[in-house]
């Protein structure tokens, strides 16, 4: 099978923009709301998620001809759960702060609709390399979406950003905007803030989508008007021509 040029790049980018799992498909919302209190936790969650997605995509794609159809879903779930448990153990051993911050949400990657969804919809039908790229794109897209949410929640909720609390190998740095502590809105650190931020981000996306659609509709309308006018002019010119000949 011949590959089209740029297909790999397209495959990678679609997970980030057109089919962003969180912002466009609205999948995997539980960790998106629960682990975006701070930017650091969001990055940690995104990395763990991407690792699980990559591993499960590759393995499912490798085994796609071996697994009988009847037990596809249970087999995928076992594969995903295995990788999640491994990632959980490594996190507990090497990043204990991340492990205790994310808590049960590392285990809950098992039931994240994105991982199972990609395994069912993509990896079970495509080659290993394509599945790898797809997993990478989806993972990076999800991580970026988490970071956007965490950015606003931490900025508004605490007035700045702190690093080094979860990834302890980074020196502790607190970038708080001077004077911001008087204006922080701490509800953004609470569950309610997560819903507000997520709702507003979706609204902004819908706004741009609507505007794009409106612009397109307007352009089409203009083009139609122009075409109609042209036709009218042509007709008139023809009439005038006919009249002149007579």
């Amino acid at each position: 099978m011949k590959r089209e040029k740029g297909q790999t790049k397209k495959n990678f980018l679609k997970g980030i923009i057109q089919e962003n799992p969180l912002l466009v498909s609205i999948l995997g919302t539980c960790p998106a709301l629960a682990t975006t209190k701070s930017l650091e936790a969001a990055i940690g969650m995104g990395i763990l998620f991407t690792i699980v997605l990559l591993c499960s995509n590759v393995l499912v794609s490798l085994l796609r001809k071996l697994i009988p159809d009847e037990i596809r879903t249970p087999a995928y779930i076992v594969i995903i759960a295995t990788f999640v448990t491994m990632v959980k153990m490594f996190a507990n051993a090497f990043l204990p702060e991340l492990y205790s911050t994310l808590g049960v949400f590392i285990s809950l990657i098992v039931v994240n609709c994105i991982v199972l969804g990609r395994a069912e919809a993509y990896a079970s039908k495509n080659t290993v390399f394509d599945s790898f790229i797809d997993g990478l794109g989806m993972g990076v897209g999800y991580t970026m979406a988490l970071c956007i949410m965490a950015f606003f929640r931490e900025l508004i909720g605490t007035g700045g950003f702190t690093f080094g609390q979860i990834f302890t190998f980074i020196p502790y740095t607190a970038l708080i905007i001077p004077g911001a502590e008087n204006f922080k809105i701490s509800v953004f650190q609470n569950p309610a803030g997560a819903f507000i931020v997520f709702g507003l981000i979706l609204a902004v996306m819908a706004f741009y989508k609507n505007r794009k659609a409106e612009m397109k509709a307007w352009e089409i309308k203009q083009a139609k008007l122009k075409a109609a006018e042209d036709a009218k002019k042509k007709l008139e010119a023809q009439k005038a021509n006919v009249g002149g000949q007579q």
Partner: peptide, 11 residues
């Protein structure tokens, strides 16, 4: 219009 559907539900 931008809030129709999910965004207003989340709020």
């Amino acid at each position: 219009k931008a809030f129709k559907g999910l965004p207003i539900a989340l709020i």
